[in-house]
């Protein structure tokens, strides 16, 4: 494992912790898209089907369990927690995400590394992760004001993607047979989706002002 991959995994972990902290400390999930969280839960469940069949390292196994567990816990809190669910911005979170799920699954049936149950679901999870942030970005755009923890959550998620791209460049240069087009192309698409958000995040950070997205 190289430093970029580790930095990517750690920023991913931090983003999840920031989100859990926000929900736990403020007992509120305002500004958070339940649809994006449900998509992430789907992403991790579909991707880590190999959890019990292929052992890569203790690190991988633990991280997989953490990502599955935390995404399910967040979805559960937003849907069923007596207090938290009241702050959910239901009327702003109307992205028709089943279209994304359908499109990604269709794409996975066509474009995969091998036509097997695990591989198709793996490709599906990669495609779905690339677009899973869309309901969240739309929600932020609609509400205009972004609270600090929500802004940091999206920032760390974007940083995770950026580090993974550096990781792939590093692996491409150092590993003789490193080619994985599905991950890399999807990863580039995913990171590009954050570009707009990053632009406004850095402007607000530079001006020491509250993050606001243009309508």
């Amino acid at each position: 494992m190289n430093i970029f991959r580790l930095a990517g995994d750690m920023t991913h972990l931090i983003s999840v912790l920031v989100l859990l902290l926000k929900i736990y400390a403020t007992k509120s999930c305002s500004g958070i898209s339940l649809k994006t969280q449900e998509l992430y839960a789907m992403v991790f469940l579909a991707r880590y089907l190999d959890l019990f069949s292929d052992f890569i390292s203790l690190y991988n196994t633990v991280m997989k369990l953490v990502f599955i567990g935390s995404s399910l816990a967040i979805v559960w809190c937003m849907r069923y927690h007596r207090v938290v669910r009241r702050s959910y911005d239901r009327e702003l979170d109307t992205f028709r995400y089943w279209i994304l799920v359908g499109a990604c699954f269709t794409l996975a049936l066509v474009l995969h590394e091998k036509f097997s149950f695990q591989e198709v679901f793996w490709a599906f999870s990669i495609y779905l992760e690339a677009v899973a942030i869309l309901p969240q970005l739309v929600l932020l755009q609609r509400s205009g004001n972004v609270d600090n923890l929500t802004g940091q959550y999206v920032f760390f998620l974007g940083a995770y993607r950026a580090f993974y791209i550096l990781n792939w460049i590093y692996r491409y240069l150092t590993e003789p047979r490193f080619t994985r087009w599905i991950s890399c192309v999807s990863g580039l698409v995913q990171t590009a989706l954050y570009a707009d958000f990053f632009y406004y995040y850095f402007i607000s950070w530079k001006n020491n002002a509250k993050l606001q997205l243009p309508a």
Binding site: R5, D50, I56, K64, W122, R180
Partner: peptide, 10 residues
């Protein structure tokens, strides 16, 4: 081993 190494990322 090669096949397993395919999905060694998270």
């Amino acid at each position: 081993p090669l096949e397993q190494a395919m999905h060694d990322e998270l």
